[in-house]
Simulated scan of single mutants.
Amino acid sequence: MKNKTAAIIFSLTVTVLASALSVQAEDNKRETITLTDNVGREVELECPVDTAVSALRYNNELIRACGAIDHIISVDLNTAQDREYWGMFDPEEVIGKSQKELDYEKIVELDPEVVILPANGAYEEAIENLEPFGIPVFIISGYDTADFENQVKNIGTMFGTEEQAQKFYDYFDDKLEYINKQLEGVEKRKLYIEGTSDLTTIFPGDPMYNMVEYASADNIFSVDYENVNKGEVDPEEVIARNPDVIIKLVTPAQAMSGTGLYTPPTKDEFKTAYNSIVTRAGWDEITAVKNDDIYFMTQFSHGGAGKLVGTCYIAKMLYPELLPELDPAEVFRSWMEDFQGFKNIEGHFYSGKDLHD
Rank of each mutant, 00 (worst) to 15 (best):
V23I: 15
M88I: 13
I239L: 08
H356K: 11
A165C: 06
F349P: 00
D111H: 15
D50Q: 15
W86R: 11
I69R: 10
G40P: 06
I220D: 04
K343P: 01
W283S: 07
Y169H: 02
V94Q: 10
A55C: 06
D174R: 10
N120E: 09
P252K: 12
T79L: 13
N291V: 02
I127R: 03
L45R: 06
T5V: 13
D268A: 15
E93K: 15
L323D: 05
A253H: 13
S257Q: 11
E285D: 12
G195C: 07
L199C: 10
L318A: 03
E46K: 14
L318H: 02
M317F: 14
D27C: 08
W283H: 05
L261K: 06
Y274R: 02
R30D: 01
T51S: 14
F148D: 00
N242A: 09
V309N: 01
K167N: 13
L355H: 01
S22E: 09
S22W: 15
D284G: 12
V278L: 08
V186Q: 10
T161Q: 06
L130N: 10
I63V: 08
S276T: 13
V39R: 05
K267G: 03
A273T: 07
C66E: 02
K29I: 05
D90P: 07
L308N: 00
I127N: 04
Y58M: 11
A240N: 12
K307D: 07
S216L: 04
D224C: 06
S22N: 11
T32H: 08
E46Q: 12
G160Y: 04
V238R: 03
G303M: 14
H71Y: 14
L249K: 03
N227A: 04
T259V: 10
M211L: 10
K248N: 01
S11H: 02
A20Y: 14
E101V: 14
D147E: 08
M208I: 11
F221Y: 15
L308Q: 00
I294C: 00
N150W: 01
G304K: 05
E84K: 14
T200V: 06
L261W: 03
V238I: 13
N38T: 13
I140C: 03
A273Y: 08
E128H: 11
G40V: 07
E237V: 13
F10P: 01
T32F: 08
E162L: 02
F342V: 14
T32S: 13
V238Y: 03
K248P: 02
N129K: 15
A217Q: 00
V331W: 00
D327P: 02
F296K: 01
P265R: 04
G121P: 04
E187P: 05
A126C: 07
E31I: 04
T279N: 15
G87H: 14
L355S: 01
F168P: 03
E321M: 10
A52I: 09
M208C: 06
E177N: 12
G282M: 13
T196Y: 13
E269Y: 05
E31T: 12
D144M: 04
M208R: 09
G231W: 09
W283T: 06
L130R: 12
E93Y: 11
V152I: 15
R57Y: 02
A255Q: 02
S197K: 13
W86G: 10
A217P: 01
W283Y: 08
G304H: 08
Y171G: 03
F168T: 05
E232Y: 06
F300K: 11
G87N: 15
D292H: 11
D234A: 11
L117C: 08
G142T: 05
C312P: 03
D224G: 15
I95T: 11
N344H: 11
